[in-house]
Design a protein around this nucleic acid. Structure first.
Lengths: 188, 188
DNA sequence: CATTAAATAGACAAATCTGTCTATTTATAA
DNA sequence: TTATAAATAGACAGATTTGTCTATTTAATG
């Protein structure tokens, strides 16, 4: 199969582009930098992707998949259903530390390119919808105190994570995410 | 005084640049578009601002001021101290509607240019710190039920607003901000 | 009226951008 | 070995970018 080479090149492009898009931003990252750091030819990039926008879309689709897999794998390790809810905050805290507090990559992509390309907005919406529904499932199985209803608690957790990650990107620290964790602890 | 003309030109530049920076993004907005839509000469722009980055910083400083003035004016209209807390959500909801759900302009600027220019990060941090401390003051004077401590409630409100505004920019609706309002209502 | 500061129009440089294209080399598979 | 597909290097076009500079006009002030 010749697919092997093609796949390797495709992955190198998406990985490099994604890393640069996140760190520098979409518009501040040139195709020439991508091909240089990915160590591939320009013609190869345009054989695999029609345009820079297409590359962004492919990056977000791959990110949606890898993001969710990592999250699910991380939460599955916890057995106690209430602890799973709290682990969501630790997971996002750890991810932000790993990402040097650059914020949520979906939100970042949407802020810069979501208005210009509808496929980007759609991909971000799907990822956030996915996050919401996963939290809902965890809440439904958590046996929490019902201070809030299932839907209310799920929405609260979702909003505090979004707010916490965003705030982490401003102050470059995870204090707010940890405060949010403590607050949820009081409500479950 | 010849300041009058200068001030008018400066304001036209900042207003136009700010509008375009918010709608299209910083890197997607060219100086040439700014001078054309502001209807001023390029030499005038570079007489008032050393660089495009400087223009961005000036825009954020002005925004910090006008944002806070508008917020304070809006909240002062409410007399009941608990209602003031809830009015925060309505204020941000109305602002997002006015802005066509483009998200928080400070977060947007920070996401795109905060890593490249430390003055931008600093300005955004100051604005968010300002928001936090204003919420704290309102909470301290609210006479809430103390289900959460003052600091905890203030942090919760702050995070839910950040999360709610961010989410509004994804789903292009204010449902999450209104849900957040109802949740806070239960806690005060 | 005369002086001075401010704003204008627009050419220009130098770099960078995306995307296309050609010619060549590499690697795989039959 | 031979045929085929994939990847390479890099020139190139055409548009756009920020920022500088010159020459001219406008407007306010003494």
């Amino acid at each position: 199969m010749t697919k092997q080479r093609g796949q390797a090149v495709t992955d190198k492009i998406i990985d490099t582009a994604g890393r640069l898009f996140y760190k520098q931003g979409f518009n501040a990252t040139g195709i020439n930098q991508v091909i240089e750091e990915a160590d591939i030819a320009k013609a190869s990039l345009y054989k695999h992707f029609e345009s820079k926008n297409d590359l962004m879309v492919a990056y977000l689709q791959g990110l949606h998949q890898s993001w969710y897999n990592r999250l699910e794998t991380d939460i599955e390790k916890i057995s106690d259903p209430k602890e799973k809810l709290l682990a969501l905050f630790d997971h996002h805290d750890a991810r932000q530390q790993f990402r040097d507090f650059g914020g949520c990559p979906f939100i970042k992509a949407n802020n810069e390119a979501g208005a210009a390309d509808p496929r980007i907005l759609t991909e971000v919406q799907e990822a956030k919808e996915h996050a919401k529904s996963y939290i809902k499932t965890l809440v439904a199985n958590s046996g929490h105190r019902q201070v809030l209803s299932d839907d209310e608690l799920a929405e609260t957790i979702f909003l505090m994570i979004e707010g916490g990650v965003t705030t982490a990107s401003v102050f470059k620290q995870s204090a707010d995410l940890q405060t949010a964790k403590k607050l949820i602890q009081k409500l479950i």
